[in-house]
């Protein structure tokens, strides 16, 4: 049990910045550049953690605490996902609610810390984040319900090891929307552009504009852990049996990089439409998991 916790925590902390490096390298490759090194984010985190933080005069204790809370909640959520079969820490009915509400708590503190700065940009970012995540959450839950149903269990961590009775079509109907939501939740293109400097267009990045030094490091690290968490869930859904399946998260990172290279960012007005389409696919999977004539042979 303790060993499992240590392994999960270490994996989340160590591997998550690498995902960002892989995405950036893939994007650089597609645009004909050399790109920053794979381990750039580790250097950045090291540099930021050494630095002191500068704080705006309008902020309160909320702003100081938020990076720590965001980081801890995200890490706690990530630790709940077993990285290989049989390493689950807890499993009970409706454990996915705990998982996503830990993320929800992190988001809540991220949003109020952005509002705490009193900047009009950060207020806009916070309102966008709140709106779009409210649209993304139902999609996640529908996908997860489909997976739970296929595995005939009510515990998500158990379902991740179950493999969905090999019903590939329905699994992919649950995974594809989950992937789309992952892009939305982790501020990737087409929902948000992690590389942009245009504060008026940002969603996630604009909320951490005022953070610096250690606070910024924790926020960035938490964001990469969230990406790790989502890709680990996808990997564990697709390849439940293998011990080394977590290595596939790097493939997921490459896929994200490719997606970001070949499509442009959408306008904010169309984001609900995109999440809606993801929801439709998730619903289709959910319906089919009930359908009688859908017999997999």
């Amino acid at each position: 049990m303790i060993i499992n916790i240590i392994i999960s925590t270490a994996a989340a902390l160590v591997f998550s910045p690498l995902l960002i490096g892989i995405i950036n390298k893939t994007k650089a490759f597609f645009s004909g550049r050399r790109g920053s090194p794979f381990f750039q984010m580790y250097f950045d985190l090291y540099r930021l953690l050494k630095k002191d933080a500068v704080r705006s005069g309008t902020t309160t204790i909320v702003f100081i605490l938020a990076p720590v809370i965001v980081f801890c909640c995200t890490l706690a959520a990530a630790v709940l996902i077993p990285i290989s079969p049989g390493t689950g820490i807890i499993s009970f009915t409706g454990d996915f609610v705990l998982l996503f509400y830990l993320l929800g708590l992190a988001r809540f503190f991220l949003i109020i810390s952005a509002l705490d700065t009193g900047s009009s940009f950060e207020g806009m970012g916070a309102s966008r984040e709140a709106f779009f995540s409210a649209m993304a959450e139902p999609v996640v839950f529908i996908s997860i319900l489909t997976i739970l149903r296929l595995n005939g269990t009510t515990s998500f961590t158990d379902a991740l090891g179950g493999g969905g009775a090999g019903n590939w079509i329905i699994i992919s109907l649950a995974t594809v929307p989950f992937f789309i939501v992952m892009l939305a939740e982790n501020a990737r293109i087409p929902f948000d552009d992690p590389n942009t400097h245009l504060e008026l267009t940002m969603i996630h990045e604009v909320m951490i504009l005022d953070n610096s030094g250690r606070g910024l490091a924790l926020m960035e690290w938490a964001a990469s852990i969230k990406l790790w968490l989502f890709s680990l869930i996808i990997v564990r859904i697709i390849l439940p049996g293998s011990v080394l399946s977590f290595l596939l998260t790097f493939v997921i990172a490459v896929i994200i990089g490719i997606v970001e290279s070949v499509i442009a960012r959408t306008t904010l007005l169309k984001i609900p439409q995109l999440l809606f389409s993801a929801g439709i696919i998730a619903f289709l999977g959910f319906f089919l998991s009930f359908s009688k004539i859908f017999v997999w042979s």
């Binding site: 439709i280 619903f283 289709l284 319906f287 089919l288 359908s291 004539i293 859908f294």
Partner: peptide, 10 residues
């Protein structure tokens, strides 16, 4: 579209 597809399955 979703409803029609599901309806025709049914």
């Amino acid at each position: 579209g979703l409803l029609v597809s599901y309806g025709s399955f049914y």
